[in-house]
Amino acid sequence: MFDWRWDFTWDILPRLIAATGNTLLAAGLGYAIAVVLGLALALAQRTPSRALTLVVREAIEFIRSTPLVLQIFFVFYVGPQFGLRLSPWTAGMIAIGLHYAAYLSEVYRGGLDSVPKGQWEAATSLNLSTSRTYFRVILPQALPPSLAGMGNYLVGIFKDTPMLSVIGVAELMHTANAIGSETYRFLEPFTLVGIIFLALSLPTAAGIRLFEAWVRRKLGMV
């Protein structure tokens, strides 16, 4: 029906697997940025300052409703216009980290809101400082309800890394594209990319579900 060439497949597979390392690295780094920055964005909406809350909310809405690929271009190309040159990796990590930070901050917000009011009052009555209240009382309880959302976005960020290829980050899609334009064969590289993504994202999603159930059991929340 179609001419799938196995010799070609075995030729290009090592290159694609090497590039998969870069894809995983990009997803991991971007996610690390997003986890930390997202928490900062969520906490920034809980200060007494209404103006800060409003600005952060609007910024999150803006990031969430515009395309990631456009944000990647924006971060990569706007810097040089003002004399700031970013490498593709740096620009890509900033863009994808910021994008997912906006999504994760919404997950944390839901988690924080789900902590009962009595916990705050108890912390106040024990005269705990604000930072101690957050780190020892509130955040540990906000984490379990946030895990499902956090897991979904881990898979999400992994699937969005191909967009980094547009500014030349040498991840999986970029490599497949390069192979395609060198050899004029797109069937094998693009199909393999799809298979690699499936092979990684389906078990990850299943693993996250198990992990979430495990955390819930550990905390006696079944």
């Binding site: 699937k159 967009m163 899609m173 395609g180 693009f190």
Partner: peptide, 18 residues
């Protein structure tokens, strides 16, 4: 389970081979 970009490229570049 796969990216939209991967699916787009696949539909545009590979589907014609079928």
């Amino acid at each position: 389970g796969t990216s939209l970009l991967v699916q787009l490229y696949w539909i545009f570049y590979v589907l014609p081979l079928f």
